[in-house]
């Protein structure tokens, strides 16, 4: 579904990505694992288009989208749940969610998407009139995920969704990711530092280190290799 090959990018003179390649399988959860600061977020930002690629290629549904602007990618069904939430603090929960249905294709499915988000996160329906800035961290994360679902995506990319959440909420986040795959039929690209949780959720795992893919395989293969676990995951 998504095919990234030899991607290069960075900030100013500093190169962050050194030709990592990655593929997601339709209807599966693919996880990109690695500690902080190895380029995982830059990878997602480059795929999404908020950071310009320097080289390499990005194919989505067999189309070359390497230099396609972000808003067109959203229209094609690519969604991002960014790190740090990025909600609209002065809009209420409902307005935040509806903002997710901004692109034309998504706006046609607005009501059904909204019903889906409320069924996934019933608490958001109760909070719908409340300003996003006044919600708890966990609820804000739900709005961020809900807003991404409102764009009517086929591929949803999540940037460290469990970061900063209490362990119980982390479980909740991973349960939701499972539901996205099983009940909604989404393809998921998940970026995480939380190795344990994402190894148990993912169907396929890539491990990133210093801007390069150092290992890949099924979760069982990764778990079964003490070298990989020790060198890159510290577990």
């Amino acid at each position: 579904m998504l095919r990234v090959k030899d991607l290069e990018s960075g900030y100013g003179p500093m190169q962050v990505l050194w030709k990592p390649s990655l593929q997601t399988k339709k209807g599966a959860i693919t996880s990109l694992l690695g500690p902080n600061g190895v380029g995982k977020s830059t990878f997602l930002s480059t795929v999404f288009g908020s950071v310009k690629p320097w080289g390499g290629s990005i194919y989505y549904e067999e189309k070359d989208v390497t230099y396609m602007p972000t808003h067109k990618k959203v229209e094609m069904g690519l969604a991002l749940v960014p790190e740090g939430k990025h909600l609209f603090p002065e809009m209420n929960v409902y307005e935040n969610l509806v903002m997710g249905a901004y692109v034309k294709k998504a706006s046609r499915h607005r009501e059904e998407s909204l019903a889906l988000v409320y069924s996934l996160f019933p608490v958001l329906k109760e909070r719908s009139g409340q300003l996003a800035g006044s919600l708890s961290g966990g609820e804000q994360q739900m709005v961020t995920v809900g807003r991404a679902l409102m764009t009517k995506p086929q591929l949803i990319m999540l940037d460290e969704p469990s970061q900063g959440l209490a362990p119980l909420l982390v479980q909740e986040v991973f349960r939701t990711i499972q539901k996205m795959k099983e009940e909604i039929g989404l393809t998921v690209l998940l970026i995480e530092q939380n190795a344990d949780a994402s190894l148990s959720a993912a169907d396929f795992v890539y491990i990133m280190h210093e801007g390069r893919i150092k290992a890949k395989g099924s979760p069982e293969e990764i778990k079964g290799s003490p070298e990989i676990r020790e060198a890159y995951l510290g577990i």
């Binding site: 972000t70 808003h71 959203v74 960014p82 990025h86 903002m99 901004y102 692109v103 998504a106 764009t151």
Partner: peptide, 9 residues
Amino acid sequence: DRKGAGVCG
């Protein structure tokens, strides 16, 4: 939120 708006397309 500029980035949030970008995420919405």
